[in-house]
Each structure stands twice: as structure tokens, then as C-alpha cells.
């Protein structure tokens, strides 16, 4: 895979004010790198406005956007030829087979007739629709429909996929499969993916980067690793005897606190691990968990509620 120097999406002081006086985006600075990026926090106007601007469908009130190196205001059709978009809502006809539908949309993405057929077959294979692809879409389950929606976004061989709530309406096994698929597209296929999702746990599972937008402004953009960094706390869970364990650990000079069913031990250095191990062994306790506490993406939203003024400066 070639290394792309420029960001996949780059927005500079992007502002969108609607005639009614609603400000959907205000002075948004954004830079999306290759890989899978989660887009969170932009409910309602902000998210759909951003998608429309990225696809070059509406002109922002001010600011610039480049998508795949193309100017969104000048080169909308070129961008749309190279971006696959999977909408949040139902968008599939009931009385057409998946193959026919995806082939037609392949044509609409600019593929010649034969290539559209081949690419549609490939896209459906990659999303895991096999013999059912000749059946009418109306007979599909929610999970299969989501796959068709993904296949139509994939058919034009995009450089960027915009997925809007791709797990919407899926049950747990359907979600698992969809997330695994997105992960594969982002890593094996080498296609940059932007996933808009309200589910932070999902974003933590599949994304490399995260962009959080709030009130039309960038709240945070960072790699997911940096947002889920390990904290210097060790969570210990034992099936029984957590009180004596706590007393012994404190007796050994460790800082211990109780959080839910877990004991949190301050991790000052590697000897702490051995102290914990030996104490548990001495007390003959069943150890069910020994884990680093990590930051969660969710804290991003919790913190803002606590001290709004400082975060608003971001």
C-alpha cells in the first residue's frame, strides 16, 4: 500500500450556518488520517451537515475542506466518485436482488457495465453475502440488509468510506459481525473508514482514531491508544475475601480503594505485582481479575459536563 502523505479529510475553520439561524458547525478544525476513525458526539444537525459538506453537496458558510486531496466545494463529483457512503437509515428497495441493486449503484459510481457486475459480485462476497445475493432484498434480515448497504458503499472501490451508524438495529451477533467486517475493511482492504457512532464501546473496539465533535466544534481528535491509556491503577477482583485482601495489601503499604466489586491498587512499580500475587497466594483466594485500569473514551463526555468553561476553549 502506498503511503498517503496528505490527510484523508482536512477541514479548516469550517463553519456552517443555516438561514434559520442554526449553527451546525462552527470553526471546525479537522484532520482525519488513514485507518479507521470514529466520529462521535455529533448528533442531529452537526453530523449530517458534516457528511453533506464532505460529499460536496452543500457549501459551507466559510472555511475549506479537502477530501482525498480534492476540494469539496470545487470537486464534489470527483469526491463522490471516490467516497462510499452508507446512510444510517433504511435505503434499500425490497423487490430487487442484492446483485442487481449493487450492480446498478456501481454503474452510478461510474463503473463501466462489466466492471460494475464484477465489482458488485466482489463487494457482496467481501461483506459475506453469498447465495442469498440473488434473492430479493425484501426477504433479508436486518443484518443482511446492513451488509448490502455496506456493499453498495464498497462497490465503487472508494478511497474513503463514510459509515453512518453501521450497527443500527443489529442484535449482538449482527453487531459483532459488522464490526469485524469494518475492522477488516479498514486494515486489510486499506480503505480509510470514518464511522459515525454513538456507541463509544464500538469505537473503542474498532477504531484507530477518534474525532469527537460537540456543539459544532472539535472536542477532541486523537489516536484511540492515547485515549485509552493505562492508568497507574491495578484492578483486582477475587471471588471471595476481598476485605482481608484489602487489609493485607494496605498493611503492605499499598494504596487501595474499593470500586464496585474491584479493589484498586496504586501501581507504583513492578514490585506491586509481586506483592499482590504473594498476598493472594498467602490468603488462598480465587483471583478472577488482575487488570490495568484504562482511560475510557467516555470520560471525554463526562469531564465536559463537570467543567464546561475550560473544555469550551478547545
Amino acid at each position: 500500500m502506498s503511503v498517503i502523505e496528505q490527510p484523508i479529510i482536512e477541514a479548516k475553520s469550517l463553519t456552517m450556518r443555516y438561514p434559520g439561524g442554526v449553527t451546525a458547525l462552527s470553526d471546525l478544525e479537522l484532520s482525519v488520517q488513514p485507518g479507521i476513525t470514529g466520529l462521535v458526539g455529533a448528533n442531529g444537525a452537526g453530523k449530517s451537515t458534516l457528511i453533506k459538506i464532505l460529499l460536496g453537496l452543500i457549501t459551507p458558510s466559510s472555511g475549506q475542506v479537502r477530501v482525498l486531496g480534492l476540494d469539496a466545494q470545487e470537486q464534489g463529483p470527483e469526491i463522490r466518485a471516490r467516497v462510499g457512503y452508507m446512510p444510517e437509515h433504511d435505503c434499500l428497495p425490497a423487490d430487487v436482488s442484492a446483485t442487481e441493486f449493487v450492480t446498478h449503484l456501481g454503474r452510478m459510481s461510474g463503473l463501466p457495465p462489466t466492471a460494475a457486475k464484477e465489482q458488485a459480485a466482489e463487494a457482496l462476497r467481501h461483506v459475506g453475502l453469498h447465495e442469498e445475493r440473488y434473492r430479493q432484498i425484501g426477504t433479508f434480515s436486518t443484518g443482511m440488509k446492513q451488509r448490502v448497504k455496506l456493499a453498495q458503499a464498497l462497490v465503487g472501490n472508494p478511497g474513503l468510506l463514510l459509515l453512518d451508524e453501521p450497527t443500527n438495529g443489529l442484535d449482538p451477533s449482527g453487531r459483532d459481525a459488522m464490526l469485524a467486517l469494518i475492522r477488516r475493511i479498514g486494515s486489510e482492504f486499506g480503505i480509510a473508514v470514518v464511522v459515525a457512532s454513538h456507541l463509544l464501546s464500538e469505537i473503542e473496539r474498532i477504531c484507530d482514531h477518534l474525532v469527537a465533535i460537540d456543539g459544532g466544534k472539535l472536542l477532541r481528535a486523537a489516536s484511540l491508544d492515547s485515549m485509552t491509556q493505562a492508568l497507574p491503577w491495578l484492578a483486582i477482583e477475587v471471588d471471595e475475601g476481598s476485605e482481608p485482601l484489602r487489609a493485607r495489601l494496605e498493611g503492605a503499604g499499598l494504596t487501595v480503594s474499593l470500586q464496585g466489586r474491584a479493589l484498586l491498587v496504586r501501581l507504583d512499580g513492578d514490585p506491586v505485582f509481586d506483592t499482590v500475587r504473594d498476598t493472594i497466594a498467602d490468603l488462598d483466594l480465587p483471583l478472577t481479575r488482575l487488570e490495568h485500569r484504562r482511560h475510557h473514551v467516555e470520560e471525554l463526555f463526562e469531564r465536559r459536563e463537570l467543567d464546561e468553561p475550560t473544555e469550551a476553549k478547545l
Binding site: 463522490r80 428497495p93 452510478m108 459510481s109
Partner: peptide, 15 residues
């Protein structure tokens, strides 16, 4: 058909 099944976004997000 395209109106009923909300297929239009798929057209308009293309060239």
C-alpha cells in the same frame, strides 16, 4: 420506488 425506500441518498452521494 426510490422515494418509498429512501434510496435517493445513495444516488445523491454519487457523482
Amino acid at each position: 420506488r426510490d422515494l418509498r425506500h429512501h434510496t435517493l441518498p445513495l444516488y445523491f452521494s454519487r457523482p
